[in-house]
Amino acid sequence: MIETNAAIGSGGLPRRKAGGVATLVASSLSNQLGAASGSLAFPVIGPLGVVAVRQLVAAAVLLPIVRPRLREFSWRQWWPVLLLAVVFGTMNLCLYASIQRIGLGLAVTLEFLGPLAVALLSSRRKSSVVCAVAAGAGVVAITQPDASMDYAGIGLGLVAACSWAFYILLNRTVGQRIQGIQGTAAATGVSATLYLPVAVVILASQPLDGFAILCAVSAGILASVLPYVADLIALRRVPAQLFGVLMSINPVFAAIIGALALHQELNVGQWAGIALIVAANAGAMLLRDGQPKRRHGSRI
């Protein structure tokens, strides 16, 4: 009987892990579908309006579920939460503004340089230099510098990457000082509060467009709420290192969805650049040695 139970238990582990992997893939797909949905509202309310609605939707869902004890927070806990809130808004706004200028696939790929940089800087292996070189080559292949290139769009993507890197570092501090996910929920609420006047002004300054609002709300659900819940579930089933590797599929999904749904065609060189950055990110996660394995973090 003991052997039978052991066999069942050991058989359940692969199924549990497979379920976690499937959840992460679904999370990545949902994230990029949300970004694509939000981009459909750009002509009406712009990236700023989409991000404002997205932050409000995320806060409206997350705060009632988590119910952070805000009155019990000390200043030592509040200051990283406030910085995290600013990073939330900056990261999403720059990403969406970049998507508007250079397309979903390229913008998301450039944003992934943020977690890649954190992973490379925390690695103790010399072979991580290979990942850095591959990522650099990927950036050159994506941008293909010439006079007609949209350098503003590239710059916004890189600012989003820096913001994601800061998010990872700040999230570690918040996680150490505040129990559970109360800090993340509080930061989401602060970010939504900052964007509330923006949403009011944008929506009040023009006739309401039901389709644009629906697309922006869909972005909040698909790109914030569902991925966050899915990531929490997946992290209970797969190692954090595997989580980081699987996150690398996001730029691939972004490029495919951008091409199929938004008709944002990429040339061979740009696809090669995406592949190089994805490979560099996956390699950096696998090469991390002697460091606590932490998640990249959902982009609320």
Rank of each mutant, 00 (worst) to 15 (best):
residue 82 L to P: 00
residue 150 D to H: 11
residue 171 N to S: 09
residue 231 D to M: 01
residue 220 G to N: 08
residue 108 V to F: 05
residue 202 I to M: 02
residue 219 A to L: 08
residue 54 R to D: 07
residue 144 Q to G: 14
residue 127 S to I: 12
residue 27 S to L: 05
residue 187 A to Y: 00
residue 270 Q to E: 14
residue 115 P to H: 01
residue 209 D to R: 15
residue 170 L to C: 05
residue 108 V to E: 05
residue 24 L to Q: 09
residue 118 V to E: 01
residue 253 F to M: 15
residue 158 L to Q: 00
residue 111 E to T: 05
residue 177 R to L: 13
residue 181 I to D: 13
residue 98 S to A: 06
residue 189 G to C: 04
residue 92 N to M: 10
residue 31 N to F: 14
residue 279 A to S: 15
residue 70 L to E: 03
residue 235 L to P: 08
residue 35 A to T: 02
residue 205 S to I: 01
residue 210 G to S: 13
residue 92 N to Y: 09
residue 109 T to G: 12
residue 211 F to L: 14
residue 207 P to N: 13
residue 297 G to W: 07
residue 154 I to Q: 03
residue 32 Q to N: 15
residue 212 A to G: 11
residue 27 S to C: 15
residue 147 A to E: 07
residue 135 A to G: 04
residue 299 R to C: 06
residue 219 A to P: 00
residue 132 A to Y: 01
residue 128 S to L: 00
residue 79 W to V: 11
residue 35 A to S: 14
residue 3 E to L: 02
residue 248 S to T: 04
residue 57 V to C: 03
residue 50 V to M: 10
residue 128 S to Y: 03
residue 72 E to F: 00
residue 96 Y to R: 12
residue 61 V to C: 07
residue 52 A to N: 04
residue 250 N to M: 12
residue 297 G to F: 05
residue 147 A to S: 14
residue 218 S to G: 07
residue 17 K to F: 03
residue 119 A to M: 09
residue 200 V to C: 05
residue 222 L to I: 14
residue 270 Q to S: 14
residue 237 R to G: 08
residue 218 S to I: 06
residue 113 L to E: 05
residue 68 P to N: 03
residue 156 L to K: 02
residue 57 V to M: 01
residue 127 S to A: 11
residue 231 D to G: 05
residue 54 R to I: 01
residue 69 R to K: 10
residue 54 R to L: 15
residue 61 V to F: 12
residue 231 D to F: 05
residue 228 Y to H: 08
residue 69 R to V: 01
